[in-house]
């Protein structure tokens, strides 16, 4: 019995690592631009499709494709912000929310039109590989995804803390007008931060694909998960996104174990609602 729980716990932590990477992008976008990026799930779907296409059509393993997909997603995010979201929304809260919803609707349905609604997976010798750790069997793609996600999270943190660009991003997040007076152009930083947030999704898509399926609707699954993590950790908080990702991974895994496959997913939505209703600042968030 204890072994089942231990396995569920470890599995939850492993998947939670990738969730953390997805949520980092979202929390970065929120922290800097103060916008709720509803297109986050759909952009992850795009990244997963990109990884799938690289594997199926070009025979490139998702791990090898990771840098390319992450860069391409960065470019897509930068362009989306520069030419669609930033332009359409004129800085109004509701307009931005609806603009990101519009982007999500367009992306979901472009892929539905092009590829149909079927779910797709890649065949890889890694898909079913396991490591034996005592009595536990750990899925190799999940272990790799976990390790690389946390590595990338650390790299992102170092980038934000140590480089001039990172400092500029943090300056704009805190005080856009002050940053402008220091010679930083907030509009550029906004596009850059949005691009980095979406670039995280490029990496996450490649890490998820060997153990996950992709379909044009998969964004709907992830968007709620990502927002739950970010809200739980505190909107805009980096450590919050990592801790929240791990907690939500475990919640999902244990929820499935206790409540069964059909009722299990309710755990995430309930956590989300409870945090919003009772502790909207989350675990690490500053008071609003």
């Amino acid at each position: 019995m204890a072994e089942i729980y231990a396995a569920a716990l470890i599995n939850g932590l492993l998947i939670g690592g990738v969730y953390a990477l997805v949520a980092l992008g979202l929390t970065l976008i929120y922290g800097v631009l103060h916008i709720v990026n509803f297109a986050h799930g759909s952009l992850l779907m795009v990244a997963m499709f990109a990884a799938w296409l690289m594997a199926e059509k070009a025979g490139v393993h998702p791990y090898a494709a990771l840098p390319v997909v992450a860069l391409a997603m960065f470019a897509l995010g930068w362009l989306l912000y520069r030419y669609v979201i930033g332009r359409v929304s004129r800085g109004e809260d509701r307009a931005i929310l609806l603009a990101t919803l519009g982007v999500a609707v367009v992306l979901d349905n472009v892929f539905l039109t092009l590829f149909g609604g079927d779910t797709r997976q890649i065949e890889s010798d890694l898909t079913f590989a396991v490591i034996e750790a005592g009595p536990l069997l750990l899925s190799v793609p999940k272990v790799i995804a976990f390790a690389v996600s946390l590595l990338l999270a650390g790299a992102l943190w170092a980038f934000m803390a140590l480089t001039d660009t990172g400092r500029a991003i943090r300056a704009v997040a805190k005080e856009p007008e002050g940053a402008r007076l220091m010679g930083i152009r907030p509009e550029r930083i906004f596009a850059l931060a949005y691009g980095i947030g979406i670039g995280c999704l490029g990496a996450a898509g490649c890490l998820l694909l060997p153990s996950f399926f992709v379909s044009p609707h998969v964004g709907n699954v992830f968007v709620l998960v990502a927002f739950t993590i970010v809200v739980l950790g505190g909107m805009g908080s980096f450590p919050g996104a990592v801790v929240g990702g791990l907690l939500i991974g475990v919640t999902e895994s244990l929820g499935g174990l206790w409540l069964g496959e059909s009722l299990g997913p309710i755990g995430i939505s309930l956590v989300f609602i409870a945090v919003l209703l009772f502790r909207p600042t989350g675990l690490f968030g500053a008071a609003r």
Binding site: L97, L224, L263, P280
Partner: peptide, 30 residues
């Protein structure tokens, strides 16, 4: 009553309604 008492508005209200819809979907499915 739950959402407005907690002061949710704008994007946060949008997200909480999305989450409630998911709760209803999972419950009716189970």
């Amino acid at each position: 009553a739950a959402a407005f008492r907690a002061g949710l508005r704008g994007s946060y209200f949008a997200l909480v309604t999305l989450a409630f819809a998911e709760v209803f979907r999972v419950l009716s499915n189970s």
